[in-house]
Design a binder for these strands. Structure first.
Length: 392
DNA sequence: CAGCCGTGGAC
DNA sequence: TGTCCAAGGCT
């Protein structure tokens, strides 16, 4: 996107020069958004219809995930399932396979459950209230407010990490996260533009789509303006305050240390865990199993592994190898595969074995053709492990 | 409520 | 190289 044109904020009536610049932040924000909004696959063109399905799908994918990473997945999902009903009729396994690589896999499970609920309980149309949305799987306070505002014009302000940062700077909120959340929510709501008549009462059209500028509030634009501002200008490090439409009014900038907001405690890193992974081939097939539905990488495909524990040595891990019969011999691959989860780093030693054609898979495991591995619900950790194990 | 839950990119 | 973090939700 272009950041040029931010010089527009300089044009103010000379008569107002001495006045505090705190008036009409919502207006400044929307004016900036009209000029500098990002063009994203899930956003309608200005003034065009917004499909709630697009908004929902993108919001779920964007939870703790970058715009760049989401882009291809959004397009893939849309091409395969053009509406909620289509996704509701898909199998959970298909959804997990399509989601593989994007992370936080409970989102995929909830995505499917939500589609099913919308189809079964809401006639295939998303609820158009914050409360109704919040009741659906995978839709928490933020996402409910975001969909309500963006897709249905409800006058509510979703507060995500971007908006927390922008608001905590604008008002120099000294209280640290997460205690400051309620206060930040209050302050964020002051950035909503005025409500318009017909605002909250208006129902979505029978096609389930709402239209910007049809008499509803611009709450969705206000929210997206703050998100775009946070993503492109009010960034975590080295914010580009000179380009910010709210800079004249920003308490943190006036203090001279905007990048120190929001206040928050450093999180401690988790302890390293170690384990072994077993890459077993039978001709052109690979031995895999499915992880339990709940927990880490829930419901995803993996090669058999030992448990992952701090201070586990190779000998202990190797004892947990699947039993393949006396004919097989384990070969330890040089090096290790490392992976960093949100709350702990992992180091896996990879062992390989080849077993004769016709050999059976141990209980709870199965053979899959190596050629079709790309279609499996394989998390990236397992793709790394398999690549390492099959190397040479 | 704090811990759990992926991944890749920026600095 | 290590650290932080990105449109959070669930328990």
């Amino acid at each position: 996107m272009t950041l040029a044109g931010a010089a527009n904020k300089r044009k103010k009536p000379a008569i107002a020069a001495a006045a505090p610049r705190s008036q009409d932040r919502p207006g400044l924000l929307l004016a900036w958004y009209d000029l500098h909004r990002r063009r994203l696959p899930w956003r309608a063109l200005p003034g065009k219809a917004v499909d709630p399905y697009f908004v929902w799908l993108s919001e779920i994918m964007l939870q703790q995930t970058t715009v760049k990473a989401v882009g291809p997945y959004f397009e893939k999902f849309l091409a395969r399932w053009p509406d909620v009903d289509a996704m509701a009729r898909a199998s959970l396994d298909d959804v997990l396979r399509m989601w593989a690589g994007l992370g936080y896999y409970s989102r995929a499970r909830n995505l499917h459950a939500c589609a099913v609920a919308v189809r079964r309980d809401h006639g295939g149309t998303f609820p158009d209230t914050e409360e109704g949305l919040h009741a659906l799987p995978g839709i928490g306070p933020y996402t409910a407010a975001a969909i309500a505002a963006i897709a249905f014009g409800r006058r509510t302000m979703p507060v995500d990490g971007n908006i927390e940062r922008v608001v905590s700077r604008l008002f120099a909120v000294e209280e640290a996260l997460p205690k400051a959340k309620p206060r930040i929510r209050e302050l964020a709501a002051t950035l909503l533009g005025p409500s318009r008549s017909g605002d909250v009462k208006t129902r979505a059209g029978r096609d389930g789509k709402s239209r910007a500028g049809d008499g509803k509030s611009r709450a969705g634009d206000s929210a997206q303006a703050l998100m775009d501002l946070g993503a492109t200008i009010c960034t975590p490090k080295k914010p580009a305050c000179a380009l910010c439409p709210l800079s004249d009014d920003c308490a943190a900038r006036l203090r001279g240390d905007p990048e120190t907001f929001p206040r928050k405690a450093k999180k401690k890193a988790g302890a390293l865990r170690r384990g072994a992974a077993f890459v077993v081939t039978r001709g052109d097939h690979l031995l895999v199993r499915t992880r339990p539905e709940k927990g880490l990488l829930g419901g995803m495909t993996e090669v058999p592994t030992s448990v992952w524990l701090a201070a586990q040595d190779d000998a202990a891990a190797l004892k947990q190898a699947p039993s393949l019969g006396s004919a097989s011999r384990w070969r330890r691959k040089a090096g290790t595969v490392t992976h960093v989860f949100t709350h702990f780093p992992l180091e896996l030693t990879v062992y390989t074995a080849t077993i004769p054609a016709g050999a059976r898979a141990p209980k709870g495991m199965r053979w899959v053709p190596i050629a079709t591995l790309k279609d499996e619900a394989l998390p990236n950790l397992m793709r790394k492990v398999i690549a390492h194990g099959l190397e040479q």
